[in-house]
Computed example of a mutant assay.
Amino acid sequence: MNDRTLDRPALLIAEREITTKLRDKTFLGSTAFMLVLVLAAVIIPALLAGRGGPDKIAVIDDGGAKVVQQASATNGDDGFEVTRAADRPAAEKLVTDGEAEAALLPGTDGFVVLGKDRVDSGLERALREATVSVGMEQNAARAGLTPEQLRAGTNIQLELLKPAPLPDIVADFVNIGLALVFYMTALGFGMMIAQSVVQEKESRVVEILAAAVPIRSLLWGKVLGNTVLALSQIVVIAGASVIGLVATDQLAILQVVAPVAGWFVVFFVLGFVALAGLWAVAGSLATRQEDLGSTTLPGQMILMIPFFFAVFAGASAKTVASFVPIASSMAMPGRMLTEKVPLWQPLLAIAILLVATVLIVRLGARLYERTLLQTGRRLGYREALALESS
């Protein structure tokens, strides 16, 4: 039997997997839920930020109002809004009632920033800098100097040796998002692959399929079909993210993430294919649904440990993880968002992952062939390996 005759059964099995999932209400519902979740994560924070408006600062004199206006002019974003109060008790009431974020009141040597239970550090810093600026202008006028003469030689310019393409908070958020997408997709589809295999074993359908189709073709069909479904789901989710970013005018994020997304797809496909073979083996080792808890545990750990490394590990650990197969699918795209990674590093990581994927799939295929028709009892991985060598 030549390779061409083996390709057609695998494609038929892949088509069967795809059409079955597209008719599955649970699969369609989970995809719709993920779409809603992604759109909400992109749109809601932007809407809330847009509705926040400037912080109101209570003042009781023109001096305080001038400082608040100076802070608003230099702070950017929403700035600050001056709220007039008749006296200190009235300003305190505005702060206590929540009608003002803070109050700027005259002090013995400048001003006092008055808050209810706490004062935001950014607000305090902005008012402090504005107070210094306004005070310097007033002192310069008394000394017969212009503000420019007083500030001569005091400018500071910021230069970064390794500038990040995105702000730290945004980069961390996207980094976690990419790792979470891979983790959730690989875990969700992996469990579906394992459940599909054990359902076919329980119903004896696998014996009919194995009589008509080579067992390896069954495996390739399941891997191919679920890879197509998983990648399609990723594309749909990415499309929803783009719509959300465009709708909320966050194109700057999109411009940085888009090039990394291409690398993510490559890492995703290779990592998913390797894991799909292992999930199929997890299903072939089981004889009933209850067995999947133990047979799928290794696959869950292979996913969980790299996920935590990609999200929570330090820079050095992430660098190492970005070259480890499976872990690289989550760690390398995240690194490319938060730092400048030389081109040879993702290329090397892909080469290592490709070799590992080939080896894992070949091992999975051998285990799958020797365990799929074992329906008497649940097999362990050691026993499956012994069957392979016998």
Rank of each mutant, 00 (worst) to 15 (best):
A230G: 04
R142D: 05
L367A: 12
D55S: 06
A58K: 09
A351L: 03
K116D: 15
I43C: 12
L218I: 13
G334S: 00
N139F: 10
A10C: 12
M336L: 00
V38H: 01
P163Q: 01
E137Y: 05
M330S: 00
E207L: 05
I60S: 07
T287N: 15
I243D: 07
K116T: 10
I176C: 04
K340I: 06
L161F: 14
S390Q: 12
I176K: 03
L158S: 03
I237D: 05
R370P: 10
V59G: 03
R378Y: 03
A141M: 08
V198D: 08
L278W: 06
T248N: 08
E15W: 15
L127W: 01
V134L: 08
L218A: 09
W279G: 14
I44L: 09
E207T: 05
K222T: 13
K318N: 02
Q255E: 10
A356L: 02
F309W: 12
R204S: 08
L6V: 11
T74D: 04
Q157A: 13
T295L: 05
K25T: 14
P45Y: 11
D77V: 02
A179F: 06
V256K: 15
V206W: 06
L158K: 05
R382C: 03
L231I: 09
L254S: 09
R362I: 12
L104W: 00
D7Y: 10
P214R: 10
P167N: 06
S217T: 10
G98K: 10
Q300M: 12
L158R: 06
L150F: 14
V235F: 15
V242M: 15
S232M: 02
N2M: 06
A10G: 09
V112A: 11
D249R: 13
D87P: 02
T185Y: 05
V281I: 10
A86T: 07
A141L: 10
A91Y: 11
R370M: 07
V206Q: 05
G63R: 14
P165L: 08
M332Y: 00
R125L: 07
A49D: 08
V311I: 05
L127P: 03
K66V: 04
F309K: 02
A186H: 12
A65E: 11
R370S: 12
E15Q: 09
I13M: 11
V361G: 13
L209C: 13
G63A: 12
E383G: 02
Q199D: 06
E101K: 12
T227S: 13
L48K: 11
D87F: 02
R118D: 13
R370C: 08
Q345H: 07
S196N: 13
V355A: 10
V206F: 01
T31N: 09
V256N: 14
E207K: 10
L245H: 11
G277H: 08
W279Y: 15
A321K: 01
A179S: 15
V260M: 07
I352W: 05
S30G: 07
L105Y: 01
A164I: 07
S217H: 13
L209W: 12
A276T: 08
A331H: 00
L297K: 04
